[in-house]
Simulated assay, not measured.
Amino acid sequence: MADIGILTFQNTLNFGASLQCYALYNVIQQMGFDVQVINYNNPIIATREFLVPDRGLKSVIKVMLNKPKARKFEAFLHRMNVSPSCDKSNFKEIANQYDGIVVGSDQVWNPECTGYDTTYFLDLVDSPIVKLSYAASIGLNHFPDCGIDYGALLGQFSSLLVREKTASEEISRYVDKPINIVLDPTLLLSLDSWKNIVQIPRSVRGKRYVLVYSISESELSLRAARRIAKEKNLEIVFIQQYKFNRVKDAINMRNISPEEFVGLFLGADVAVVSSFHGLCFSIISGTDFLYASDSGKSSRASRLLDLMTLLGIERRSVSDYFNGEMIPLNWDQVFSKLDNERIRSRNALTNSLGLVRSSQAN
């Protein structure tokens, strides 16, 4: 029996989701708790990640093409203590083993992402199990009006730690209790901790390159990467998350592991990103970076901008680069602010987990 269960997106082929789970697991373990990742199966997520096929031949083909990547992600998941697989029918049975459950990080409270699955609000969990969140994200400016009683569900949480200001403001409309903003778990681990798991893909060993990790705005990101590569005499390395098309003038990374993903950021001269976790690993590794904002996804852009503002980073967009308005990164300042935020976020998590210790003593 573990002290703490973590409920997050573990059945995934998303690099950021997998790595934030690993980071939170390790941080809680470092704090002296016996911790386990709850191996919860959300069918909507499994289908979206092409872990299982949807209807149609195209979906079946994508699942087959993802098999090598899926095996690597499964191996990475088992770097952690993982519960038996469960779904809604037996989630409560698994949950009853823990003294406390931490929900997060990532967009666990985005109903549109989870298929309106209230399991991520721990609706199936009863007292005396302590309900906590860490860096939980809504991923939207507002909860969708879909019949979920957010106030009742969130009111059951003993501690609410969220990742973004927008989440804090939205949740405060439903509950009258403190809501603290904390760092994404990936940012809680030091660079040395991440180096312990790094793997370098064979195709980039000994090469200097600009790394492109783009969930959106791929053409804009690639246009910037091509110009940087020409200026600095670098090759282009392109990480494909969900798409199956190849970039002709790049080293394409399709079925890589989470460990290789981290290695690519640590080895890059420059990174061009449009994802939140792409930004996180650029900062962790101290890699010079640009970001490409998605004009159609204001919530995604705000996540990147909120983190950069917190760390004193300005004018690092692709537009700033093309307009000659980019401001050089002051890494001493960035790392100093990051250290302070790590201490604050770790203290917040320590205080939350203290509620579990108190329940164990009673």
Rank of each mutant, 00 (worst) to 15 (best):
Y321F: 15
L329W: 02
F33R: 03
I171K: 00
A224W: 05
S336Q: 10
S345M: 10
M80H: 08
R303F: 11
K131S: 08
K92R: 11
S203V: 15
Q20V: 14
V130K: 01
K62Y: 08
R71A: 14
S319D: 10
V175H: 01
N347V: 15
L307H: 13
D184W: 06
R205V: 13
S293V: 12
S336H: 09
G296A: 10
Q333L: 15
A2W: 01
I138H: 01
N255W: 08
L187Q: 07
F143R: 02
G56K: 06
F289C: 11
D123R: 09
A95P: 15
V63L: 12
R223K: 12
R303C: 12
D339G: 03
L13A: 09
N42A: 05
V182I: 09
G16D: 02
V37H: 00
K92D: 11
L290H: 00
V130R: 00
G139F: 07
Y120S: 11
K230R: 13
L153R: 02
C86H: 09
L77R: 15
L305N: 03
P84M: 13
L153I: 09
G151W: 06
R346M: 13
R342A: 07
G155H: 04
R71N: 12
L264C: 09
Y116S: 14
W109Q: 01
A225F: 05
I228T: 09
D184K: 11
N233P: 00
P84A: 05
S105T: 14
P128N: 06
S275W: 08
L338I: 11
L19R: 02
N81I: 15
Q241K: 07
S299H: 15
I4M: 05
K131E: 03
